[in-house]
Nucleic acid binder design. Structure first.
Ligand SMILES: [Mn+2]
Ligand SMILES: [Mn+2]
Ligand SMILES: [Mn+2]
Ligand SMILES: [Mn+2]
Lengths: 243, 243
DNA sequence: TAATGTTATTAGCTTTGTCTAACATGAGCG
DNA sequence: CGCTCATGTTAGACAAAGCTAATAACATTA
């Protein structure tokens, strides 16, 4: 009955118990184990810990029951789980299973403030006319599905709108050695896009083209004091605003 | 040199080492400890584990250096950290420290797909004209700051646009006992809003008004088979579309 | 009632990650 | 040269989670 510091794992157990009680009126160790993909031997000690924290009523060998406190917590976790899953699925259009997994990891660590603001964004996107218009524009943008020149143009316009004075947007591959640019977007898909993002090529980072191999193919850039090499193909996916 | 399964904690150590090497050219145990808020005694074993995984070059008592593999990983984590922080700050307008903390937790667990799509949303919001328009409408909506009747109206219009056939939007407090409604938005701020969200009152959930206390103040609702009681003040913050 | 099978608990082991406190190392100074 | 202090390492304890394998308890069936 103390400070109620539930760990992520315990929160997941609690969520599971809550859902089992809801759906089939009783929570058995075996079902909890199956739902969480752990062995029964791991469940018993977890239940003892939850009972010690005043979250469940746990008489050994009997069915497990939530206390009002536990129910409150469980409902909170589940609400987070649900809204996060929906955000990943409906807004970001992530694969259902991935959405589920990401949400179930995030639900334990996201601050109340972050949760609150994210929910606001979610509501706004579905309820507000501006949000709904934006959302359909976002989802119909070919970059989410396959890439297309048409949308590039669309984005290029946007980019020029950003800085107002309409600097020229080009790809990193088109910079001259020594020239710098501010990244506006990273195109491409799947592994190639991820590799670029993983290297730290993000919107608003500054890239300097250091040198180009004689053949023209590997290109060396400087990014936050770090030298990286890119293939020309990759470099052409990075749009920059010449600085 | 095996499967490269870095835990969250090790990823944070790696990120810290990377940043220290960048900023002051060398990483000392003491500085790592300070940066991560742990004791020096925890750092040494962590460094050994990172060395075993081929991430750092670690000769005891000497300065710590990243291997190319470690550098690649560190850059990836840091890129995630940065873009997530910016999402929380610039899009969701979360307090800087909270944004930092939320990002630093999320960076370890978010899937590549989730990361990719979130980055896309981020880019889209800053680069596309539609996104930029939406963003300024989102941020200027008084609900993010103090609540206002004006914006309620704004939202009401949107709600009616949602279901097309223009059902009437009212608050839960205005339902009659036995009547059901689908939640369209949860207003209010801070703790009160959070309490409602924590109870599971989210957009698109169905609420039935069960009964109202004689005095009119506590109100009992049914939400996903669960009975909850709300104060009238809270209930009036929940907009529903009568079903 | 006795045998059998299912389910739950326990004991013992592992890994991760933290702490404290004791100890080791080396640099600089007297 | 030897002392002192800052820094780094180690040992030992602990808590959280998980696993396996042995055992206990219950329920069902013969
Ligand atoms: Mn979870
Ligand atoms: Mn969950
Ligand atoms: Mn982190
Ligand atoms: Mn981080």
């Amino acid at each position: 009955m103390q400070e109620t510091v539930l760990t992520g794992a315990l929160e997941d157990y609690l969520e599971t118990v809550y859902q089992l009680v809801q759906s089939r009126k009783l929570a058995r160790v075996k079902d909890i184990a199956r739902a969480r993909s752990v062995r029964a031997g791991s469940v018993s000690p977890a239940m003892r810990r939850l009972a010690d924290l005043g979250m469940i009523r746990y008489v050994q060998r009997e069915y497990i029951d939530l206390t009002p406190l536990g129910e409150e917590h469980a409902r909170r976790i589940l609400a987070r789980h649900r809204i996060l899953t929906r955000f990943f699925r409906e807004i970001l259009q992530v694969t259902p299973e991935t959405a589920e997994a990401d949400a179930c990891a995030m639900e334990h660590s996201l601050s109340a403030e972050g949760m609150d603001h994210l929910t606001r964004l979610f509501e706004f996107l579905r309820v507000c006319p501006d949000g709904r218009k934006f959302l359909s524009s976002f989802h119909s943008c070919p970059r989410i599905q396959p890439a297309s020149a048409e949308c590039m143009l669309h984005h290029r316009d946007g980019t020029e709108a950003i800085d107002g004075k309409g600097g020229t947007t080009r790809s990193v591959a088109d910079l001259k050695p020594g020239q710098k640019g501010r990244v506006t977007q990273v195109s491409g898909e799947g592994p190639i896009r991820r590799r670029l993002l993983d290297m730290g090529i993000l919107p608003d980072t500054t890239i300097e083209l250091e040198r180009v191999a004689p053949t023209g193919d590997p290109i060396w850039i400087k990014l936050e004091g770090m030298q990286l090499s890119l293939r020309r193909k990759e470099a052409s996916l990075v749009s920059v605003l010449a600085a």
